[in-house]
Design a protein around this nucleic acid. Structure first.
Length: 862
RNA sequence: GGGCGCUUAGCUCAGUUGGUUAGAGCGCAGCCUUCACACGGCUGAGGUCACAGGUUCGAGUCCUGUAGCGCCCACCA
């Protein structure tokens, strides 16, 4: 456009430039770039079943600043966008929205129409559909969400290559995660096993270590009386309902109170089961009476004891959280009858009350229960405490890879570095392999079937695996090679593995999924291993860890060179911001109110790894900064005698040469800022870079521009004007480019005023100190600015206008300051509103400026 | 219980390898209008840098300890 608008404005820049960038392909990845020329980003795919909140805007802005900086450094930036539509949140949402329920045993129905759009009516029953049908519905729902997400990301100004998108339930994702699974299985890194696992009784699925959280819950100690050789033995428990599941009692081997009992046979109260008294170092003498009952399974310690002490199994709790209909093995007849009468079919709380009543009736409980609160393990999305049940599950080996995984973690550069400790802590603390199977419907199925023997029993030891070329498959509707669909479920036929992969098992392949692994080896070679994994610090143990597990076993290297961990957004009262209070803080509303540049400024002001208060004030400041950029640019480019079209054509050579001391001083300062900002951004410290750039910019506006304004207008002669103009143009060019990663809209707008159509500041080269004139002394500008500030203060203190004429300025101070003043006396006098000969100097130790204002105009009113 | 981080002006935060009088913005107070900018400008007040020791010529910065806050992990009898 090569002209300055009549009235520059920030209004509408997002829409206008968003469209221009899309049309021009400004952010398209250059596939011809070699790996060394590429900067690749493992973008986190946001969950589409929720809505984006301000925390997303915050962390994605951090990534975008990096992307824009690297692009200006000349890198071909690989910046895809994913959408996480896999997993439980989407499953629930699809169920409610379409009124369907997934039943993997059903066949696929072509052209299925769901009973509802936008939710079932009251009382209506959901319709059961096959897994492929369910996935289709999900994709339908997700598409709408994804468009809304993309719209927001675009208006925020993310420089994503929108041709490069993926979903985590889409065909590519299913293929990549099934392929990764099959390869790990072939290498012996994946295995299935029948084992006790933590189990959510509501979702009816196994849950992995990484998805646990502790919650403080009320409980109570009950003191039970067991019998040993005719004596009472006191055992404290918080879970009396597990008494029929008791397989032993345990004490610490060094506990002198009980040493003589080790090896004895103990009889449980109520159910009369004979169990051994065993010793194990995990028993804690100071807890309860020092004797614990070992059950199937009250907690993970029970599992350890069961395994290490080779104890029997007496399962009582089923997968639905209710007590099994039949008593566990080993109960005597009378005990079995009591079990059936009082416990069978009950839930945990009902069973607890029943057992307590039985204990009381038998006089085998001492005193009343003693209430306590204690931490209880929950699935992070669950509502009831986890139980432990035995089931067949798929695992990925991690425990025997701890050392290796620590080594790969050390090969990554962490930003900030202390986040590395969280990864190491997690890896060192692994207690079991990664449980990747879930007994849910919506997710990537395991590409596995089992042959059925003559009795129709599955042969788990002889799984039928899908050929890689067939992927993705759904074993519930596809038949394995060598079998026909009609053999499904028949003796001698086959049966599908019913499980799906945990959502992290899918998202752990984002580098492969997005990067074209196997399907597009040319692309993969150009982007992998990726340069950057940006993410929140709360998912180090899940997403970061699981991606590390996958890529290192498949590729033998860490999947990225850098990991950038963004903090959380906190409420003003320092709580983690919740989605529920989103009404006034929807990202779209904030972008509307403060402008995308304003919101981005707030985000970019926060360092990586630092939790940050939600602060609209900071967005206002960002908005103000953007406005200032607009207006300062308007001043620089609106100077008399500027041929903007000529500048656009000729480039920096047309700027001229700065010669005045003040101009050179400014440029010297600018050189330092460029170096500082570049070093900061290279170190992933965008906040520091922004701070330096911003501080310089405000000084540029408030001091430098005010000082040279008259000269730039040509009031002090053409030579001086040319010098000022050269410095102004050079500074503006550099400053716009420095600001571009944080303020992409206003910088692009201004850039267009004096560059050819089609040129983008975001495709221009990051500034280097070498393109800015050297030789100036920044102290000159500082010194003159401080004198000018004294003049302003004199006017302010006199209550006079800053335009008040000045008769005399006497500067006393160190020689250094005086030299600076003499070097720029004409600028100083003009800016102060004084005649050029009104400035006098004299030597003194301390700076002191005596200002004589012109008499107030008696006719002028003030 | 283990680990990590934080504690600097009323608020939000900078303070790079220890170096003269500790900075910014917001907020506050006062002043100034329109020739880049009232979505503006100028000026000012405001801090014993959580606390206690130590190292040093010199500590907001390094070391030790204490307290408070936050997060990660472990802890379920």
């Amino acid at each position: 456009m090569t002209s300055v608008p009549e009235r520059p404005s920030l209004a509408g820049l997002e829409a206008a430039w968003g469209e221009r960038w899309e049309q021009a392909g400004t952010y398209h990845f250059d596939r011809s770039a070699t790996r060394a020329q590429v900067y690749s980003i493992d973008t986190p795919p946001p969950t589409v079943s929720g809505s984006l909140h301000i925390g997303h805007v915050f962390s994605y802005t951090h990534t975008d600043v990096v992307a824009r900086y690297q692009r200006m450094r000349g890198k071909a930036v690989w910046y895809p966008m994913g959408f996480d539509d896999n997993g439980l949140p989407t499953e629930r949402r699809v169920q409610n929205y379409f009124g369907v329920r997934c039943d993997p045993s059903l066949p696929y129905v072509e052209g299925f129409t769901p009973p509802a759009e936008g939710g079932l009516g009251k009382g209506a029953e959901p319709v059961s559909v096959s897994r492929p049908n369910f996935i289709e519905l999900c994709e339908r729902l997700a598409t709408a969400d994804e468009q809304a997400f993309e719209q927001l990301w675009r208006s925020l100004g993310l420089s994503v290559d929108w041709r490069q998108t993926y979903t985590t339930i889409g065909e590519r994702a299913r293929r990549a995660s099934q392929r990764m699974f099959l390869r790990q299985l072939a290498r012996g890194e994946a295995y299935s096993a029948e084992a006790p696992t933590l189990w959510d009784v509501d979702f009816q699925t196994a849950v992995a270590q990484a998805e646990l959280e502790d919650r403080e819950r009320p409980g109570a100690y009950h003191t039970l009386l067991f019998s040993v050789g005719g004596d009472d033995l006191r055992v404290d428990t918080t879970r009396p309902e597990l008494l029929p599941a008791c397989v032993a009692v345990v004490a610490h081997p060094d506990d002198d109170r009980y040493r003589h009992l080790v090896g004895a046979t103990v009889t449980t109260p109520v159910f009369g089961v004979e169990v051994p008294f065993v010793a194990h170092p995990l028993a804690q003498p100071d807890k309860g009476t020092g004797v614990a009952m070992i059950c199937t399974f009250g907690d993970l310690t029970d599992v350890t004891w069961w395994r290490e002490l080779a104890l029997p199994v007496r399962a009582t709790i089923g997968r639905d959280g209710r007590f099994l209909a039949t008593p566990p093995a080993g109960l005597p007849a009378a005990g079995g009858d009591r079990y059936v009468e009082h416990l069978a079919g009950r839930n945990v709380n009902q069973a607890r009350r029943a057992v307590v009543e039985l204990l009381a009736a038998d006089g085998r409980m001492v005193g009343d229960p003693r209430p306590i609160t204690h931490p209880v393990k929950f699935y992070e999305k669950g509502d009831r405490p986890l139980e432990i049940v035995t089931s067949r599950q798929w695992f990925i080996r991690t425990v025997d890879r701890q050392e290796e995984l620590l080594g790969f973690g050390g090969a990554v550069e962490w930003h900030p570095p202390f986040m590395h400790a969280r990864y190491d802590d997690w890896v060192r603390g692994l207690t079991g392999d990664w449980l990747v199977s879930r007994q849910r419907f919506f997710g990537v199925p395991f590409p596995v079937w089992y042959p059925l023997d003559g009795d129709g029993e599955p042969r788990y030891d002889q799984p039928l695996l899908a050929d890689e070329a067939r992927l993705p498959v759904d074993p519930t509707t596809d038949a394995p090679d060598g079998y026909e669909e009609h053999q499904r479920g028949k003796p001698g036929g086959f049966v599908a593995d019913p499980d799906v992969m945990d959502t992290w098992a899918t998202s752990s392949v984002t580098p492969q999924l997005a990067g074209g692994w196997v399907d597009d080896p040319d692309l993969f070679a150009r982007v992998f291993p990726l340069d950057l994994r940006p993410q929140g610090h709360d998912i180090i143990r899940t997403w970061l860890f699981s991606t590390m597990v996958r890529s290192t076993s498949e590729e033998g290297v860490a999947p990225w060179r850098h990991a950038a961990l963004s903090g959380w957004i906190l409420d003003p009262d320092r709580k983690k911001m919740s989605k529920s209070k989103g009404n006034v803080t929807t990202p779209a509303g904030l972008l509307e109110t403060h402008g995308s540049d304003g919101v981005r400024y707030w985000a970019a002001s926060a360092r990586l790894g630092t939790d940050t208060a939600f602060d609209e004030g900071q967005m206002k400041i960002g908005r103000k900064l953007a406005t200032k950029v607009l207006n300062a640019s308007n001043f620089v480019l609106g100077s008399r005698g500027l041929d903007l079209a000529g500048l656009a054509a000729a480039g920096p050579t047309a700027w001229g040469t700065a010669s005045e001391a003040v101009d050179l001083a400014l440029l010297a300062g600018l050189r330092g800022v460029v170096d500082d900002a570049t070093a900061a951004l290279d170190g992933y410290e965008h906040a520091r870079a922004l701070e330096r750039i911003e501080a310089f910019f405000w000084a540029f506006c408030d001091d430098y521009v005010e000082l040279v304004k008259a000269r730039a207008y040509g009031e002090l002669g053409e030579a001086g004007a040319a010098s000022a103009r050269a410095a102004l143009l050079c500074s503006l060019s550099v400053l716009l480019r420095l600001f571009a990663p944080v303020l992409p809209f206003v910088t692009e707008e201004v850039w267009s005023w004096w560059h050819d159509a089609g040129a983008s500041v975001h495709r221009s080269a990051w500034p280097s100190a070498d393109e800015v004139a050297a030789g100036g002394d920044p102290a000159v500008l500082t010194a003159v600015a401080s004198v000018l500030a004294r003049v302003r203060r004199a006017k302010t203190e006199a209550g006079r206008s800053l335009k008040t004429a000045v008769d005399r300025i006497e500067v006393r101070g160190p020689e250094q300051v005086l030299a600076a003043v003499r070097a720029s006396v004409a600028d100083l006098a003009a800016a102060a509103g004084a005649p050029a000969d009104a400035v006098v100097t004299s030597a003194a130790a301390e700076l002191d400026v005596v200002v004589t204002l012109a008499p107030a105009d008696p006719s002028g009113g003030r």
